[in-house]
C-alpha cells in the first residue's frame, strides 16, 4: 500500500485539478468539474483513515489526467458562449448591435 499523501501533495494536486477544470471552454463542463473537484477534495479532507485517504488520492490523480485531456479536447471543439456567461461589456455590445440593426430596419422601411 502506498504511504498516505502529504498535505503539500494534496494541495498541489487540488491546484492542478482546479486549473485544468477551469480550462474547459464549455460552461457546463467547466462548472461541473470545478464543483466535482471541490467536493472530492472536501471528502478527502474529512477522511481520517490513511489507507482510504491514499485510495482517494490515487483516484484523484487518475482523474486529474482525465480532466486535463478532456479539457484539451473540449477546447478544440469550442462553441459560442452561453448567455449566462456573457460579461456585462459583451451584453452591452450585443444590445448596441441589436439597436443598430433595429434602426437600420426602420430606415429601410421609411
Amino acid at each position: 500500500m502506498a504511504p498516505p499523501p502529504t498535505s503539500q501533495a494534496i494541495k498541489s494536486l487540488y491546484h492542478n485539478m482546479l486549473r485544468s477544470s477551469q480550462s474547459f471552454s464549455s460552461y457546463n463542463f467547466r462548472e461541473y468539474f470545478i464543483r466535482r473537484t471541490k467536493d472530492s477534495f472536501r471528502e478527502m479532507q474529512a477522511e481520517s483513515d490513511p489507507t482510504r485517504l491514499s485510495t482517494l488520492y490515487a483516484a484523484a490523480q487518475r482523474e486529474s489526467g482525465v480532466i486535463r485531456r478532456s479539457a484539451i479536447v473540449n477546447q478544440l471543439y469550442r462553441g459560442p458562449k452561453l448567455a449566462v456567461e456573457l460579461q456585462d461589456k459583451e451584453v452591452e455590445a450585443r444590445e448596441m448591435e441589436g439597436h443598430a440593426l433595429e434602426t437600420g430596419l426602420e430606415r429601410g422601411n421609411n
Binding site: 498535505s7 494541495k11 491546484h15 472536501r42
Partner: peptide, 11 residues
Amino acid sequence: LDSLDAVEVVM
C-alpha cells in the same frame, strides 16, 4: 479559511 480554501484564494 482552511488549507483548501487558501489554495482557491491563491488561484
